[in-house]
Design a protein around this nucleic acid. Structure first.
Lengths: 197, 197
DNA sequence: CTAACAAGTTATAGACGTATAACTAATGAT
DNA sequence: ATCATTAGTTATACGTCTATAACTTGTTAG
């Protein structure tokens, strides 16, 4: 028998391992056997902590949703300028994906019965926060033109998605942070009032 | 027994059905049984046309790669302005995703052994074509500033990815065409030399 | 110290998916 | 008209994954 650990710790380990494997092989391919093996346990051991595999995915989901929510909250500090909050929102999310590169794939994954996952709801929340913050920035006269806030938000969101796809293709989360800030600044300055570069 | 068809037609049907199912339930979840059922056939019938399931995915892959390539080619017509070609490239790709909404998920999917699919290579080609066309547009003085072409291409690519994610979340390919042109114009005008709005 | 509980084990049932073998009937070439 | 080929069938083997049952041993409360 391997090292015995308290359920609380082990549950966290299982979630973490599942996330790591999800990035490596794709969320759908992660089996209870793989997780167990990574942890030096036998496959049924997982079921001591999550009675059904779906429960594990629910735990993962709520972990990720909490992090997305925390990022939105951190970027809603009213003492900051709208632009500073926009930056926090985007960079915070990129950091989240950097730490949990399986997130994008889990987001678009279907649960065992092919249904939409709750993470998609959190992403809608994120997008709404982005749109709201863009609106405030517009009210503060930061952006030129009178582009709909939703469209501007969509383009800023595109900065994230562009990087995420590149990350998924070359399997390297580092580009998220390396290029993220530069591209975000570029996108923001393109719409900034005074901004010529 | 159901209607008997020539292999050539049936193969196309199988590929098409697999693509439809891939969008509905996710590429990984598509089974030979599901495809057969959709076509009113029995499961082993699929194997008369594709000796292994992997062969079916290879066929799908080469179909999609051909379409991506065709779009790149269509947008390389030297008689057009760089900006017109940029538009063709982006809108052509959005049209492709509109017609085959399973494409984005297939693109980031792993094949049975967890390897990178050839579609990702085609997407790199697409990105390179985008970057090259942006460079030409810069040489023609269309864009202001001296932003690296790759960064500009990344932001334009973001327009696509932003829409694709929204499509994946609300399962509605219509937004690709409905919002695509507007967002692309917005993005291009934000970097256009004279452009204020 | 001991009993109850918790975290692990081995063994295995059952569902599902890929793939093959052996058979059957429609189609097309001679 | 005949016959080989081809597109389909039924039946089934095999592998993999989820899940459960029954047993074992480490941990902790009293």
């Amino acid at each position: 028998m391997s090292v015995r650990k308290p359920a609380k710790d082990r549950k966290l380990e299982i979630v973490q391992t599942a996330l790591t494997l999800a990035f490596e092989t794709g969320p759908e391919r992660v089996t209870t056997g793989m997780i167990a093996k990574s942890l030096g346990l036998t496959q049924p051991a997982i079921y001591k902590h999550f009675p059904r595999k779906d429960d594990l995915w629910l735990a993962i989901e709520s972990t990720l949703r909490a992090q997305i929510k925390a990022n939105i909250l951190a970027a809603s500090d009213p003492s900051l300028t709208p632009i500073a909050r926009l930056r926090l929102l985007v960079m915070g999310h990129l950091n989240l994906v950097y730490k949990t590169p399986a997130l994008p794939e889990i987001m678009v994954a279907r649960n065992p019965r092919g249904m939409r996952t709750g993470i998609q709801i959190s992403m809608t929340d994120f997008f709404n926060a982005l749109t709201g913050t863009v609106e405030e920035a517009q009210d503060n006269g930061f952006f030129r033109g009178n582009t709909p806030a939703k469209d501007l938000a969509a383009l800023i969101f595109g900065v994230i998605q562009s990087l995420v796809l590149r990350m998924l293709v070359n399997r390297d989360p580092n580009i998220l942070l390396a290029d993220g800030e530069r591209l975000l600044d570029l996108q923001l300055s393109a719409f900034a009032r005074q901004g010529d570069e």
